[in-house]
């Protein structure tokens, strides 16, 4: 990406000849240049456009290949029994992933219990109290949302597992909650910002208590954004593996861990299970994303 080279010449600024003949000459130069260069400019532009457009199939190819592979290989594993039965040891047929589904559900429930209310109140704090403290919290939320999930897993291990000497879904839920929290905080605050400060101000100056204003004005207005943001954060949390790695007792107690574990097994059965679980997970995440978008869309229409 080269930029337009700046004029690097000293400009003396002597008034150029402004005579009519000189103007006509300059005009001719531009016209001539425009006419002669247009073919080259258009061809070069088309070439660059084609190059840009070629990037689109390159970008979509992995997505399509991944979707096809997951559906085609995962569908073979899916059955009622696959979802309802507990895993069996290697070599024993008929195993399912029920324990992983239940485990993931439990972990997510803990994560929601931690992150959703906390995210809401932190966002309200940021919204109502501009100032250095809020700026610091906002900045750390932004930086936290970039902290690798594996580090949050290590953190949960250090805080819980090492202290109480056992793996636990609570620790895993804590890790996922910490992971989702900064995303939720920022999404909630953005949603609240779309509610006019004037409304908040009007509520406050009418003499209503802050909590009532928060409930009746801010939250009601921000609801579509809050729901959407929380669901998208949840979708991210559901698919995380790294925070669970050091907090969950067995890979059979969480879907993502089960995939990680079975993917590296040489047995076709295990790989089949991994694909099946991946398909379930993918469907779950897709459903969450679609619900998030639909909620945003319908609630936005209703409030308008």
């Amino acid at each position: 990406m080269s930029k337009l080279p700046s004029m690097q010449v000293a400009l003396d600024g002597a008034m150029p000849d402004m005579g009519l003949a000189e103007v006509a000459r300059r005009r001719l130069v531009v016209r001539d240049s425009a006419r002669r260069s247009i073919g080259r400019r258009r061809t070069a532009g088309r070439a660059m456009q084609v190059i840009c457009l070629l990037a689109v199939p390159i970008a979509l190819a992995p997505l399509v290949a991944l979707a096809i592979a997951t559906v085609s290989k995962g569908a073979g594993a899916l059955s009622i029994g696959f979802l309802a039965h507990a895993p069996t040891p290697e070599g024993v047929p008929g195993g399912g992933i029920s324990t992983a589904i239940v485990g993931s559900g439990e972990i997510i429930a803990y994560a929601i219990a931690l992150a959703v209310p906390l995210g809401l109140f932190i966002a309200l704090f940021l919204f109502e109290r501009p100032g250095p403290i809020a700026s610091a919290i906002r900045f750390s939320a932004d930086v936290m949302s970039g902290v690798p999930s594996i580090i949050i897993g290590i953190f949960a291990y250090a805080v819980y597992v090492e202290r109480f000497h056992h793996f636990s879904d609570v620790a895993a839920g804590f890790a996922l909650g910490v992971l989702m929290l900064p995303i939720m905080v920022r999404a909630n605050e953005e949603a609240m910002r779309t509610v006019s400060v004037d409304l908040w101000e009007a509520g406050i100056s009418l003499g209503a208590r802050r909590s009532r204003v928060a409930r009746s004005v801010v939250l009601r207005g921000a609801l579509p954004g809050v729901v959407t943001g929380n669901l998208l954060a949840l979708a991210r949390g559901v698919g995380e593996t790294a925070p669970l790695l050091f907090t969950v007792a067995s890979p059979t107690f969480a879907m993502t861990l089960l995939i990680f574990n079975d993917a590296t097994q040489p047995y076709p059965d295990a790989q089949q299970t991994a694909w099946g679980t991946a398909l379930v997970l993918l469907a779950l995440v897709l459903i969450l994303s679609v619900i998030a978008r639909t909620v945003a869309w319908t609630l936005n229409r209703k409030t308008r």
């Binding site: 559901v238 698919g239 593996t241 990680f260």
Partner: peptide
């Protein structure tokens, strides 16, 4: 939105 474990 695709989980990293599925990509992996």
């Amino acid at each position: 939105a695709v989980p990293s474990i599925v990509v992996g």
